[in-house]
Design a protein around this nucleic acid. Structure first.
Lengths: 346, 346
DNA sequence: AAATTAAACTATAACGTTATAGTAATTTAA
DNA sequence: TTAAATTACTATAACGTTATAGTTTAATTT
């Protein structure tokens, strides 16, 4: 019922001008010491807090960061948000979150809404549809408006801005090498279609690891999944594909999946076929999420350190916002991956 | 580089007053038709968009909703956020998300930050610490400021506001009955300490279901977990506790866990003890999350319909914001749960 | 032809701040 | 003793809007 008190009201109440009140509360040397303490005491009593919207308008800064991610129910993105939120709060920024739901159109609308004065900068992971379309006009327009953007994870080399990614090639190599060191020679790769940048890169890493270990590449051992919506039905299709390859390629002794859903699907198919994990087939996934931790056997994974990615993205953004990197060229920060070894690869 | 154009600039450029431009863009009948179309065309050309911060200041409305949840990496909360975000966007609202990380202090700070002009209303799920302390002054102060609050899931009867919850007692009863109908008689309950409202209620539901089925309550079959941070270590303790009970109470034939982490822990312990699921012991969890879906065996769960909860919370909030429920007493909306049957209970 | 009304615009104030410039009273310096 | 400097304030404009209350000029009425 009691609305927040304003400078105006304090001024009226104590018979000073608004300027005096404003300055007194900022402890300005221009104001007499008695007046200051009187005003400060009054403000404290009435729990005065400056109105952030007014400040935003005045300063043309909202101290708010917008984040657009393709989906929420995803351990990796959740972790990234935690990282962003923590660092942002520490630096006095708020975080607005929008979901693109993997849709290009929603991504465009979300950006438009946020850019209309609500946020100082954006952190984005591009939707699958955007990557497929290769249409980045909305990103470019925002950058043109002098609103800094940081891309993470799902990026594009056709967008010029700061980026934070993991070394997907290196991560995939680590994963593949992990299996090879275990003595696996015939390694099935479950990956995405090439337009998903991370899938593409992880595929490259897998191929490079094989080459470096003098294992001949068998393209039949690569399953490229076309999944846009991650529905139950599509999951079923993935399992079907894996099953088919397992039936035709009997010597498979390792599986590398580019995310934990695919890895979990692989586990399920293997168990259904009574194939022992990790004795007969070793499995490794990407992303250290809850599924990997609670699956049976628990999954060895490539940990992407999502929280760190979030933190670094936020750090890079705030640097741009503070003009600390004004004339510096755009940077791409690479976060190291690490293997979390669990039961699925003994 | 090109900053967004303002009414002032348009006015100057076309030699009209700011008022005229403003009205022309609102298609006001006060403005001549030629002028209007000229101004509208110009605005469109320069992609004029009203500055939301200025509008917020003017209207004393931000069209932004604040959401404070205890943690992010949690299927249920993620789903709730999806529900909130979808509905909010549909109604022209933005969503700011803050994490309390189960800490009372962070919850207080988050609310303070958001309340300073950033948001029109709040949707909150209370942190465990807050529930333990039973200190709700921050919530009350916010409500006193005429900022509507909707609580969901983790609520308290000591706070007077609109609430959206599931019927935890009923859900727990459904779960327990599901096991009883399966012929289970000695059902282990893995729950939280009583200060967590949902844990408490689910415990009650369990006890009621037993009573209604004339099964005597054995308090040794109730494990109350004290977990504040959900660390790996605490998880280990949970498994230890379950293991101990399984060793002493040999006739256990069912387990009801009040969340999916506890359920997954139960699965793990059972499998380690070579107990067949569901043949020897049936397991049912709460919350239909990814763990349940991808665990082996997949878990039967009580689905809380998080997205629906989010939507209803958002709907209730916007109702208050629009003063549609001005004089109505606070309401508590109860969302029905449903059992999702999977392998763990045949 | 004077009075009324309608049409098409503009000026002003307000939302809550703060930075800049300005003013009055007092103190200090020459 | 008068000019200069200091102290302690106040007024104003601005951030970008919009609603309210004006102000012209032209058209209509009587």
């Amino acid at each position: 019922m009691k609305k927040r008190i304003t400078l105006k009201q304090i001024a009226k109440e104590l018979n000073y001008s608004i300027s005096t009140v404003s300055k007194a509360l900022k402890d300005s040397p221009e104001i007499g010491i008695d007046t200051k303490s009187k005003i400060q005491a009054f403000a404290k009593l009435y729990n005065y807090k400056p109105n952030n919207v007014a400040l935003s308008l005045k300063n043309r800064k909202t101290r708010t960061i917008g984040v657009i991610i393709p989906e929420m129910v995803h351990y990796f993105f959740a972790k990234v948000i935690i990282g962003i939120e923590k660092f942002a709060k520490k630096m006095g920024y708020n975080v607005i979150i929008s979901l693109s739901n993997e849709s290009f159109e929603k991504e465009v609308i979300n950006i438009e809404t946020l850019v209309d004065g609500q946020i100082d900068g954006l952190i984005i992971s591009l939707s699958k549809e955007t990557l497929l379309k290769q249409d980045f006009h909305h990103i470019h327009e925002t950058i043109d408006l002098d609103i800094p953007i940081i891309l993470f994870d799902r990026i594009s080399s056709n967008v010029y801005c700061d980026k934070v990614i993991i070394d997907d090639i290196e991560g995939a190599k680590k994963a593949t090498n992990h299996l090879i060191k275990n003595g696996r020679k015939s390694i099935l790769l479950i990956t995405t279609e090439d337009y998903v940048s991370v899938g593409n890169l992880r595929t490259t890493g897998y191929i490079q690891a094989l080459k470096e270990n003098n294992i001949e590449l068998d393209t039949d051992l690569i399953i490229k999944v076309e999944d846009k919506k991650s529905t139950e039905e599509e999951l079923h299709n993935i399992e079907e594909s894996i099953n088919k390859v397992l039936k035709t390629k009997l010597n498979i002794d390792g599986i590398f999946a580019v995310n934990e859903i695919y890895a979990a699907a692989a586990l399920k198919v293997l168990k259904k076929n009574n194939i022992k994990i990790p004795e007969e087939v070793g499995v490794i996934g990407f992303t250290d999420g809850v599924i990997s931790r609670y699956s049976d056997p628990s999954l060895t994974t490539v940990d992407q350190h999502g929280e760190k990615i979030g933190k670094e993205a936020c750090k890079a953004l705030i640097k741009r916002l503070n003009n600390e990197s004004k004339n510096l060229p755009y940077q791409t920060k690479i976060i190291e991956t690490s293997i979390t070894s669990r039961e699925s690869t003994k």
